[in-house]
Design a protein around this nucleic acid. Structure first.
Lengths: 218, 218
DNA sequence: GTCTATAGGGGGATAGAC
DNA sequence: GTCTATCCCCCTATAGAC
């Protein structure tokens, strides 16, 4: 058993177990037992438990963000100076995250793990996320602003935040959709998920500010 | 120091610490030290760590859900047989959660804690949540359906799920909004949060299904 | 690179005195 | 109801043989 193999086995086991129990609830012992490797190998390969966590999340997020940027590149090539339609930008943003684990046998757990990104309490890990998303922010921000030029800056950020929440919750907690819909919705159908999400977020991001003032109190 | 006082002190300390580090990352020892009470008192009052967790979450959720139902009662009184405007129902649903901790000195942490509800991995705890939300589901579901009679059942549940995600993320991770907006948005302003959320969710819940088909591929 | 063994520190829970 | 003391388990990290 070579070193690369051991590394991979640790990462795969950590993904699965952390998706189920969270990272604080997952011990290195349970990870190495599940992976069939030695306890000490984690510290050899990743330095510490936190180093392992960072690599687990990084390995999930990097390809997703790479695909987001590729899709945005393609859209910018297609539309040139013209604004990109809202639903197309949103598709490029949420699609890669939802489709991410499509071909993995652990795809459900891995989606949950990606969703947990957004509620991980460790500060070190949170800082590394912020860094990983810097380029996404710098590229998608202006694209959105070109498509929604009349939207106030604050309104835009509120809506982006809500969009991230809807996406993250869909990744992290598919069971809840199954439960509230009594099985009528299939949260593990990636294409249906993307279609529904893009539809919902397009309407929310593009909402007319005046429209809802009728029902506001205070 | 009477027993009620000890119970309260434990619950208050548990709220604060769990909001920061998650429950798996918070030991009973740290809770009792912070509360200035004896370690054994947790088992006396709550039976186990899990019993304590259930009570912490229950104490947060119960008044929020009670207020939701009261607001819905008032709306049903106001509108009778007529459908309630979408933004008014949404206000009754998200408002109590966002305003919940308005008057507490730990309001920021407590909001985060309520948001964590949605990513708590323990099955026992998740089951107790499902139970706590049964009545909410049974009352708000039909109200929504009267307001949105033409929306397919599946579409409705997808959108409700996205709405819950947007709300939960806003509760759980206010810092992220501050960060992505470079401080332009104030996630601790409860009224602004409710206004923005209701605006966004109204548009999303009420989206015209045909509208976004223009940009769909595959 | 991989292992065993262990250091060294919490962890949750409980028995039993007060 | 509250405390001390303690049981017994699991934790991460590392030293050092191979």
């Amino acid at each position: 058993m070579g070193t690369v193999d051991t590394r991979e086995r640790i990462l795969a086991a950590a993904e699965r177990l952390a998706a189920e129990h969270g990272f604080a609830g997952t011990s290195l012992r349970s990870i190495t037992a599940d992976a069939g490797v030695n306890l000490a190998s984690v510290n050899y390969h990743f330095g510490s438990k936190e180093g392992l966590i960072q690599e687990v999340f990084g390995r999930l997020i990097r390809p997703v963000n790479r695909e987001r940027l590729e899709l945005l590149d393609a859209l910018e090539g297609e539309f040139g100076e013209k604004p990109i339609p809202l639903d197309r930008i949103l598709e490029a943003f949420v699609g890669p995250a939802i489709r991410m684990a499509r071909d993995s046998k652990d795809r459900i757990l891995i989606r949950q793990l990606l969703g947990m990104t957004y509620s991980e309490p460790s500060e070190v890990i949170q800082k590394s996320f912020t860094e990983q998303f810097r380029e996404i922010r710098e590229r998608f921000g202006p694209a959105f602003r070109r498509t929604l030029p009349d939207l106030a800056k604050e309104d835009f950020f509120w809506r982006l935040h809500f969009s991230i929440g809807a996406m993250a919750h869909t990744l992290a907690d598919p069971q809840r959709l199954e439960a509230i819909s009594d099985g009528a919705c299939d949260p593990y159908d990636e294409e249906e998920t993307v279609t529904q999400l893009v539809q919902f977020l397009s309407a929310g991001m593009g909402a007319d500010r005046a429209r809802s003032s009728a029902g506001m109190k205070r």
